[in-house]
Each structure stands twice: as structure tokens, then as C-alpha cells.
Simulated assay, not measured.
Amino acid sequence: MAVPDNGPVIVSISWWLCFLCGGFLALRVYAKLSRSQSLWWDDYTLITSWTLLLIQSVITQIGQRLGFGKHTVDIAPCNLATIALYTSIGASISCFASTGSKISFGVTLLRLFKGPSKWFVWFSIVTLFMAMLPSALLTWIICTPPEKAWNPSVEGKCWDPVIATDYGIFNAAWCAVIDFALALLPWTLLWGLQMRMTEKIGVGVAMSLGVLSGVCAIIKGVYVVQLREQDFFYNGKDVTIWTSVETATAITGASIPVLRVFFKEKRSTHVTQDRRNDESVPQAQVKRPRSISMSQV
């Protein structure tokens, strides 16, 4: 009889998400460098987040080879503490990866806004980071000595596990609120610009994809309760997967606005060249479509 194992599903989805959002990030970087634009702090933050997601995927793969994804009774006893340690490390890394991907978009918005809106973006960035830190560190401080958190056989004391679970739910909820707020903020800027309505909607939708990351944060928050379950190595599939989905969605969503401008410029350039070749239209007479200046994105 086959042993129930969620490990292959967890690992395959984790790697697929890592490479998918990595592709969007690579295109984002290429789009900027090909236009002779320097990378800025939002780009470096996003690259760091993806690197952490890659490390998280490697750790998940190692844990799966040791038995992560199976019922606890089906895992070799000598591997239980090691899997728990890797799971703790991966959870801490995922916190920084997810939050960093959201902060990256906030850093982008800092270049577009002034006044109260800019201060709100700063508030969002700071509170995202401050709310994330306890989630990333709880595993390492919840027990005395810390080793007891991943090795129950060690003598010591631990806080009530409900504390970590409840805070995880709060952190996910706060991330969702900030995602929604930052996703809607660009519309306040776009509505005052002299642009065609279709162009406003196109730019607005491209810059509002953080909403999807917020939805993922809510779903992850629902599954955080799996941390309370005794057989987490098997039952923790959903919270593990949705943690990666949240980060990958944020990285992809932050890359799409840059790619939209890049492909729009490429298309405009090809149209201009075709007109010059077919109609001999002087470059000075060719009107380029008006768009929001996204060179700062």
C-alpha cells in the first residue's frame, strides 16, 4: 500500500512558482537595462526576495527528501528533528521573501508620489517590515532553549503554540490590507492625468496587481491554522504552498508594469519604423501615443 505523501506536490509547485516569477523578474531587469536605465532599490529588493524564494524552494526540496509531506508516523524518527529545523528555517526565510516583494512595490511608489500619499507609502513599508519580524523570529524565541522548538525531546519550556498561530493570522491580514491599499493608490495619481481612458485603465490595472497578492495573503491566513495540527508535516501542505504563491504573485505583479511599458515602447517603435519604410514619413511627424511616464517604475 502506497504511503500518503504530499511532498512531491509541494516541491513541484514551489519550483514552478519560483521559475515562473523568476522569468518575469528577469524580463523586468532586461527591460530596464535594455533601455539604459539603472536598477534601483525596488529592483534590488525584488531580486533579493526572489533569491530568498529560491533558497526556500531548495530547503523545501531537502525537507521533502527527508520525509516532509508524509504523515509523521511514516517518517524515519531520526529525520523528524531535522525536518522540523529545515521547516523553521524555511518559514523564517519565507517571511522575508514575501514581505520584501511587497516592500519593493512600495519603494517604486515612493518615486511617483509626494506629500501625504508618500508618507502613507512609507507607513506601509515600515509597518509591513515591523509586522513581519515577529513572525520570522517567533520560531527561534518561542522555546527555551530554542532547540526545543524543533526537537521535542529536549528539556525546556515553550510558549502556548496559539500565540504563533494567532500572530501569523494577524500578519497575513495586515499584509492583505497593505496590499489592497498600495494597489489602489496609483489610481489616485492616474485620475488626475491627461490621458485617454483606455490608457488610464491599462496602466491602473497593471499597477494594481498587488490585489492578487493580498488575496493570496488572506488564503494563507486561513491555512495558518494548520500550524496547530499535530501532523503538520503532512497537513501543512496548503500553508506551505500558499506562502510561495503569495511571494511569487507579488514578484510577478511588481514586474508587469515595467514590462507593459517596455512592450508598448517596442510596439510603438516597430509601428514607427513600418510607417517610415512604407510611407516615408519623417520621424518628426510621427506621433507617439501619450502615456504616463513610467521610466521611474
Rank of each mutant, 00 (worst) to 15 (best):
M1G: 13
M1C: 12
V3Q: 10
P4Y: 08
D5N: 14
P8T: 08
P8C: 04
P8N: 06
V9E: 11
I10K: 07
I13Y: 11
I13A: 04
I13K: 12
I13E: 09
W16Q: 00
L17R: 07
G22Y: 03
G23A: 06
F24E: 09
L25C: 04
L27D: 05
L27P: 01
Y30I: 09
L33K: 09
R35Y: 03
S36E: 14
Q37F: 12
L39W: 08
L39R: 06
D42G: 02
D42T: 06
D43N: 11
T45K: 01
T48S: 15
T48L: 14
T51D: 05
L54M: 15
I55S: 11
I55V: 14
V58L: 12
V58M: 12
I62Q: 05
R65C: 03
R65N: 15
L66K: 15
G67R: 11
G69W: 05
A76I: 02
P77D: 07
C78Q: 08
N79F: 09
T82A: 13
Y86C: 07
T87G: 15
S88Q: 12
G90T: 08
A91L: 06
S92M: 08
S92A: 10
S92C: 08
C95Q: 15
C95V: 15
T99H: 02
S104L: 04
T108N: 08
R111A: 14
L112C: 02
L112E: 02
P116K: 13
S117P: 00
K118A: 14
V121L: 04
S124L: 03
V126S: 05
S135W: 04
L138R: 00
P146M: 06
P152R: 07
P152K: 06
P152E: 03
E155Q: 13
E155V: 07
G156C: 03
G156D: 04
K157E: 11
K157Q: 07
C158S: 06
P161S: 11
A176L: 01
A183Q: 04
A183N: 11
P186L: 08
T188D: 02
W191T: 01
G192D: 09
Q194H: 10
M197A: 10
M197E: 12
K200G: 10
I201K: 01
V203I: 14
L209H: 12
G210F: 10
G210L: 03
V211L: 07
V211P: 05
S213A: 15
I219L: 13
K220S: 06
G221P: 05
V222W: 11
V224D: 01
V224W: 01
L227T: 00
L227S: 00
Q230E: 12
F233E: 10
N235M: 12
D238F: 00
T240P: 08
T240K: 11
T243R: 08
S244Q: 15
S244G: 13
T247Q: 03
A248K: 09
G253A: 15
G253T: 10
A254G: 10
S255R: 07
V258P: 01
V258Y: 02
V258R: 05
L259G: 07
L259S: 11
R260Y: 15
R260F: 15
V261Q: 13
F262C: 00
F262L: 01
K266F: 07
S268N: 15
T269P: 02
H270G: 01
V271A: 14
V271G: 01
T272C: 11
T272Y: 03
T272F: 03
D274M: 13
D274N: 13
N277L: 12
D278E: 12
Q283L: 13
Q285P: 00
V286C: 02
R290G: 09
I292W: 11
I292H: 09
M294Q: 02
